[in-house]
Design a protein around this nucleic acid. Sequence first.
RNA 1: UCCUCGGUAGCUCAGUGGCAGAGCAAUCGGCUGUUAACCGAUCGGUCGUUGGUUCGAAUCCAACCCGGGGAGCCA
Length: 500
Amino acid sequence: MSISSVKNLADHQDKIVTLKGWIYNIRSSKAIHFLEVRDGSGLCQCIVAADEVSEGVFEAAGSLKQESSLEITGKVVKDDRSIGGYELHATDLKVIQIAENYPITPKDHGVEFLMENRHLWLRSQRQWAAMQVRNTIQFAIHQFFQKEGFIQMDAPIFTGNAAEGTTTLFETDYFDEKAYLTQSGQLYAEAMAMAHGKVYTFGPTFRAEKSKTRRHLTEFWMIEPEMAFYDLEMNMDLAESMLQFIVQTVLDENESELEILERDTTYLEKAANEKFIRISYSDAVEQLKSKETAELLDQMEVDRKEELKEIQKEEKEIKKEHGSAKKWRKAQIDQRIKEINARVDQIEEDLRNIPVWKESAANFKWGNDFGGSDETILTMQYDTPLMIHRYPAEVKAFYMKRDPENEKLALALDVLAPEGYGEIIGGSEREDSLDVLQARIEEHDLPEDLFNWYLDLRKFGTVPHSGYGLGLERTVAWICGLQHVRETIPFPRMLGRLRP
RNA sequence: UCCUCGGUAGCUCAGUGGCAGAGCAAUCGGCUGUUAACCGAUCGGUCGUUGGUUCGAAUCCAACCCGGGGAGCCA
């Protein structure tokens, strides 16, 4: 007999093993209990049959409730009826604790309730799978950069200046001096790149913006590589091969987790294997204003209206059926009506939005930054991540190098994930000339004395260099196919959410 | 800050001016292979808060509180 984990059950077929874990769900008949046991590595159905265990053990099994903790011993049996293909035929069972009534039942719950119970919600299958994938992504990022000869550096979290851009930062008291929580480690990474050549940060980032969307957190994790002697093209190549490595690693290592998440991997396969689309900002603007885009949106509107009609018709029909339906069918109908209502809400929002999107795209002015809808429209037209480069300098940060072929452009780069997941990478080639950088700092009304150390990097052996920032949570959301970044981090910090 | 949708049992929801409802969970009973098991019973309510209209308010009106989605900003 040995202690085993659910993940390794296949290696112990027909052997007696002991699992330690928690009850995920339990179903009972008179002489047989089905225990779904989770042990942190996976889920396993355990069979406790009255004629195979002592009376005491059988009764103990019947007393178990959701999330009760236990040790269970039995024979590993291959059975296709069970989740994972293996089940445990119990011979013995030790209850560690009978859990109190567990709030997260096997039925549906609302977001607010689940967020209030985030500390427990993390035990649920989908949340468990998302955290497993997050871990794979984190480790893959380290593997990628380490094999490419980068060293990891840690940038400070307290910073003395609120400068750089327009974003609102969290202010704290630093021994009677104002300090801000970092919004980026980039400037520090540039300094380290001049010492080590290729570096990357992997740390928390804070933004005090009052953004209430599925893409925003106030505290999130960002990976920022910074490389000496890299131009914009090399920067884009690096971003592409990094993302492909991450996606391929998840596809290789998290097949079962992606299945739990019901993730369609078609686009992930494409992202891992096909070259990313690269277009310039100016071409993207042309595309937004094109006839094709207008037609695409018109078609989308027609499709949504058609779908709305169909599901409303379905709702009418099943509501008619409801009166005379049997109990189980009634439950089925109620469930379907709930789904239809949610979809109707979504379609109605789309129908409100599409005309706005259409107008915003058609009347887009060269020089503006893309809004969320513009990004969505652009990514809708491709299957792989989309790299947009050379943005108008005016909408980008002061440290970005201008395009030598067009002063109005910054050598910037954004990567938009497919399927509407939006911007996951923002980066650029950095301005490496002391004079130009000083002028930019003045233009942006930034306090030069705070940037003296940064300007030193351009005085002592300045070189062309580039880098970017990858948003971890948005990447996890995209790869897992999650609707909201709050499910990509164990304890999300967002507007109105500080606990648990 | 603005736009928009919502708040009814522990949970998910129905109820649009006239007795407060269903499913799940919990408790008890039944059922030998269940997959969100099933069947029967029991338990369960400050209808977000305050004020107003009305013979009568979960339902209508106003203000406020809380939450979802979006805009701006961005990873």
